[in-house]
């Protein structure tokens, strides 16, 4: 793996390099939060110092909220022709890169999801490390440090960034930007790097003790607190929309008015909605809200381990700041631990 340096005084030239590879997308403010948005002017590309938690995670690039996946006529059907742009996504935090690795596994194991793959191939991930805020707990989910899943990864060390190259595409970028990416990385940089890692490690304050929760999920499956949460839950579905590892969608066919044609639409669904578990004959596996919450937390904290070897919560803290009634990984774990 290659490591290079980007001096802060050259930071303003980064956009010109990246734009040669595709559209540049990065966090921009929206209200009191941020969203990944297309950057049209180089001065709008900001490498924020603080941890940036966009309202929606980067899954929106790979499995869009709504997507037309098929056009059909009585005689034939075809995949709609869409031009998927290459997008360079700048400022992706480590926990989200872990989420991306989870999505990759999910969408490529057993069945390859082509709609995901054709978008996945068109994103370039420029990761960035930053000091945690009071909601981030990726240190507890082993997702605070990344080793794979990015094309480039930036660590801010004061006057300069250390830049890790994680893929061939990343290598292409630093080669094309050879006037700003310097190969001159002296050994004493290691000192700064270690000091930064240590500072960052100590800066995590959110203390969610996840040890043993997998077993506790099993043991506490019938505990009363699930019903209390069920009574509080608004079934708004926000938790699943904002969670970087939620993948569920619904598919429906729609016919055009007075035309012999239609299309098939796929859009984000939520296991918090009643119809999600509705099957033929009006049977519903998870009639009550409590049952639906159990399903979600079983999936986040337990079931995924069986399939893929790690829990599917990456500690991003979105559910903590999004759920209006404070049902989230933190409050659930609190209850599990009694």
């Amino acid at each position: 793996m290659r490591v290079l340096k980007l001096s802060k005084k050259d930071e303003n030239k980064l956009y010109d390099v990246l734009i040669k590879f595709g559209e540049v997308w990065a966090p921009v403010p929206k209200g009191s939060r941020y969203v990944f948005d297309k950057i049209e002017k180089k001065e709008d590309l900001i490498m924020y110092n603080e941890f940036i938690r966009t309202i929606l995670p980067i899954k929106k690039f790979l499995m869009p909220q709504e997507l037309n996946i098929l056009n059909f006529k009585p005689s034939k059907y075809e995949k709609p022709k869409v031009d998927i742009p290459t997008r360079v996504i700048v400022g992706v935090p480590p926990c989200e890169i872990h989420a991306l690795n989870i999505l990759d596994k999910f969408y490529t194991t057993d069945f390859v999801d082509n709609y995901y793959m054709e978008r996945r191939e068109k994103v370039i991930i420029i990761g960035k490390s930053s000091l945690p805020d009071e909601y981030l707990f990726s240190h507890k989910t082993n997702t605070s440090i990344v080793e794979e899943g990015y094309d480039l990864f930036f660590i801010d060390l004061g006057d300069y960034y250390l830049v890790w190259v994680g893929s061939e595409k990343g290598d292409d970028i630093v080669r094309l930007g050879s006037d700003i990416f310097s190969e001159d990385v002296p050994v004493d940089v290691a000192k700064d790097f270690v000091a930064y890692r240590e500072k960052r490690r100590k800066a995590f304050t959110k203390d969610i003790d996840l040890e043993g929760v997998t077993d506790l999920m099993e043991l506490m499956y019938d505990a009363d607190f699930w019903d209390e949460f069920g009574e509080k839950c608004l079934s708004c579905g926000q938790c699943t929309m904002v969670c970087p590892t939620c993948t569920c969608f619904n598919v429906i066919d729609e016919i055009e008015l007075n035309k012999d044609e239609g299309h098939r639409r796929r859009y984000w669904d939520s296991c918090m909605f009643k119809d999600y578990s509705l099957v033929a004959g009006q049977h519903n596996f998870r009639e009550s809200r409590a049952e639906r919450l159990k399903l979600w937390y079983t999936h986040k904290l337990k079931a995924f381990i069986g399939h893929f070897g790690s829990p599917s919560c990456v500690g991003c803290g979105r559910c903590i700041i999004t759920c209006p009634v404070d049902i989230n990984v933190e409050t659930v774990v609190e209850k599990l631990k009694g």
Binding site: I55, C236, P324
Partner: peptide, 23 residues
């Protein structure tokens, strides 16, 4: 006619809005 039995929040989140309840 069939409808997806989902609340306004679904499309609100599709459009990446902050939740006003939290505000």
């Amino acid at each position: 006619p069939t409808y997806t039995n989902s609340p306004v929040c679904l499309e609100c989140k599709f459009r990446e809005n902050e939740c006003l309840l939290n505000d």
